[in-house]
Simulated assay, not measured.
Amino acid sequence: MKAWTYILLFFIMITSCSGNSSSQNLTWYKNSTITNIIEDPDKPDDVVRIAIGISAQVFYLSKKSSDYNTLFEKAKQSFKRGKAFDIGIENNTNIIRQINEIKK
């Protein structure tokens, strides 16, 4: 019986530690609206500056990202139409990695 307890404990530890590591590396701004989109004057070929919320926290959208076009379209929707999204910012870089529809 003791062996089964250890096996069960081991299984629980493995499954609880596994998961989507990319989402663990993101800070989420839930139900947020983009208030400004401008070209970055310091790195115009690399990033676009994105301001989120009333306090206008500034983040970046990398033009070199493989999903840049999709993310930029969602950012424009939020900015122009006031549409709110859940926005995932990569920790320690301030780069926007995900813009998701709000789950109801």
Rank of each mutant, 00 (worst) to 15 (best):
E73F: 08
S21E: 12
N31V: 02
Q98C: 01
G82D: 04
Q98A: 06
S16Y: 09
K2A: 11
R97A: 11
D67T: 00
S55A: 14
K104M: 06
I96H: 04
N25R: 09
L71F: 04
I37Q: 00
I12Q: 01
F85Q: 09
S62M: 09
K103A: 09
M1Q: 13
S65H: 12
K76W: 07
G88V: 00
Y60F: 13
G88I: 01
Y60M: 07
G88D: 01
D40T: 07
K83P: 07
F79K: 02
I12L: 01
E90L: 15
P44W: 08
I89Y: 09
S22N: 11
I7R: 03
E101V: 12
I7D: 02
V58G: 01
I38F: 09
K103N: 14
T35V: 05
D86A: 09
Y60T: 10
M13T: 10
Y29K: 02
G82C: 08
I54G: 00
Q77L: 05
Y6Q: 01
K103C: 07
I50H: 11
L26P: 05
I99A: 08
L8M: 10
E73C: 07
R81P: 00
A75Q: 00
V47H: 01
F72V: 06
S66H: 06
D67H: 04
V48Y: 12
R97H: 09
D67F: 01
V48G: 11
S55R: 14
S32I: 00
K104A: 05
I12H: 02
S78I: 00
S65L: 00
Y68V: 02
A84Y: 02
S16A: 13
Y6A: 06
S16G: 07
I95K: 03
G82K: 14
I7C: 02
F10R: 06
P41S: 15
L26C: 11
D45M: 05
S65K: 08
S65N: 07
G53H: 04
T15F: 15
K63D: 01
S66P: 04
I102T: 13
S65V: 01
N91C: 04
K104H: 10
Q98V: 04
A56F: 09
S55I: 11
N94E: 10
A84Q: 05
D45L: 11
L8N: 06
D40V: 04
L26Y: 05
N100M: 10
E90R: 15
N69R: 06
T15H: 08
M1Y: 12
Y6R: 14
L8W: 03
K43G: 12
P44D: 12
S21P: 13
D42Q: 13
I102K: 15
D67N: 05
I37N: 04
I34D: 02
N36L: 08
I14S: 12
L8I: 08
K83A: 14
I12K: 03
P41K: 15
I38V: 14
L26G: 05
I95P: 03
N69Y: 04
M1G: 13
Q24R: 14
I12G: 04
K2N: 07
